[in-house]
Structures are given as C-alpha cells and as structure tokens.
Nucleic acid binder design. Structure first.
Lengths: 138, 138
DNA sequence: ACAATAATGCACTTCCATTGCATTGATATT
DNA sequence: AATATCAATGCAATGGAAGTGCATTATTGT
C-alpha cells in the first residue's frame, strides 16, 4: 500500500501540494472529468496550473484522456486494467446522454477490429453512448 | 441515374449554386473533410454559409459528422451502406496518424458491444487509428 | 410581379485549448 | 546554511472552432 506521494515519485513526478490535491480529486471521482470540473473544484488555483498538472499526469501515464464526442476533453485516472503506458491499450468508455457523464469500462475490452488490406491499426477509440445505470431508472 | 439537383430535391433541400458546389466537392473527396477544408476550397463564400450548408446536409441525412479524435469535426457524404437516417447505423472510421486523413469504412460494421447491467447502449462511435493504405508504403 | 420564405453574408460572441513570460517555490551543490 | 539551478505556478494573451443575431439577397409560389 503506497502513499500517493510515493506513487507520484515512482512515476517521476515531483510532489507538490497542488498535484496531491488534484490527484485526490481525480481518485475520488467515479467519472471522467473536464478541466472545467477541476477548475470549479479548485477556484483558488489557476486554470493553467490545473491544465499543466493534468498534462503532466497524462504524459506520465497516470491519467488518460477521453474523447467522448461531447467536444470537451475529459480525463480519468488510469486504474488496474487500464495500461495506458501501452499505446495499444483498448478499453471502452460509456457516455450518458442523460447526465452527460462518462465512465471508463475497463473490464470491457474492445474486440479485434478488422481493417482493409494496406491499413495498419495502431489504436482504437470506442465510445458507447446511451443511458447509464444511474439514469436508466433503477 | 439521378442528377444532383434531383437528388437534393428528393431530400427536401432547396437547390442553390452554393449547395451544388459543396455537394460536388464532398462527392469527389475520398476522405472526410473539415469545415476549414471546405472554406479553403471556396474562399469567396462565407464561413457561415458553408457551415450552415453542411448542417443542412447533415439534418437531411446526406452527410454525416465524424469525430475522429483530432478535436475537429469532419464531414463525409453518406454512401450506399451508410444509412444515416437510422440513428443506430454503425460503421467505423479510420484515421491515419500520418496524413491525418479520415475515411469511412462503410463495409465494416461495428460488432455488438456488451455493456454492464443497467447501461443502455444507443449509439457507438468507433475510430481506428493507424496508418492508411496510401501511407503504409505500397 | 409580388409577397412570403429561405439562403447568404457580416459581425460578433463564446468556449476550450494552448503558449510566453515573469515569479515563486523546491532541489541540489558547495 | 546560503546559493545557484531548475521546475512549478500564476497571469495575460492568443488562436481556433463552433455557433448566433440580424440585415440583405435570392428563390419560390401565387
């Protein structure tokens, strides 16, 4: 059981108060968040700092970026089952058209996709849209 | 063999010189195009006109929008095998990381994706990224 | 030919992403 | 412990794409 500090250090990320806070914020969220979400949670901090912190996390593969089709980039912590260091890691994301939230379905791997001759597949982005469990009534 | 004029009329779209030009432009393209692409091709015309023309085409289901993950919306004509009137039509798109072009692979249907209990799947966006046939060497 | 309606063009606005630069803070070296 | 070095933060500004309101022009139907 590592502390967050040790974890960040193991990823070659300098530990700062800001980074710890943002990490904790991401960790307690069950859904992918936008920069604005983070901004609202930390209104004393500057947008740029938050932006760059998330970028740093992304470069060090502790956060991955999600394009769920809303036009706004979202971010989520990489979890067990989400090997973002590996370029070809493929898990799917679910975007709820009702509450507008996006979640990672890391246990759902993307099936092999066949592409025509001459095409080389390196990466796949798969977003399923619909209604999430919270909104679907039960 | 319908003329473009007849085709547009059959879709309840008024025929104008601008719309014919834009339609022809889209038709001769083998790849999805951005608004900027269209803008560059028609620099005498106003951005807004181009924007609204494409929107109209989209509403009338003769063009579909593609989110290939570049952050810029692309558009492509719906072709045989692409039933965009049907909300749930699912064909995949291929984005080349080399030439940055995106093509529709209409003959490649998206496999059924399983989602956890409580989640309702309505729509799927699947983009395969890699190297296209033109860039892959042969 | 004319009235009604739709298409086009212009000027803005908004929102998100991104960068340059100065400043503050942390780390390492002596 | 003081200082030099380098990274993190904050501020200001920019750029790009998407979208809207309104006036003007074109098209359609009567």
């Amino acid at each position: 059981m590592k502390t967050i500090e040790q974890f960040l250090e193991s990823k070659n990320i300098r530990v700062t108060a800001m980074r710890l806070l943002i990490y904790k914020f991401l960790a307690e969220k069950q859904v992918a968040v936008t920069l604005s979400n983070i901004e609202n949670a930390f209104d004393k901090a500057d947008r740029t700092t938050l932006y760059r912190t998330v970028k740093t996390f992304e470069e060090k593969a502790i956060v991955h970026q999600i394009d769920d089709g809303t036009g706004i980039t979202k971010y989520a912590l990489c979890e067990k089952g989400c090997n973002c260091e590996i370029e070809t890691d493929l898990h799917l994301h679910f975007h709820c058209n009702n509450c507008n939230e996006t979640v990672c379905l890391t246990e759902h791997k993307i099936p092999q996709i066949k592409v025509p001759d001459g095409f080389v597949s390196e990466n796949v982005n798969l977003v399923v849209k619909g209604v999430c469990d919270k909104c679907s009534g039960q």
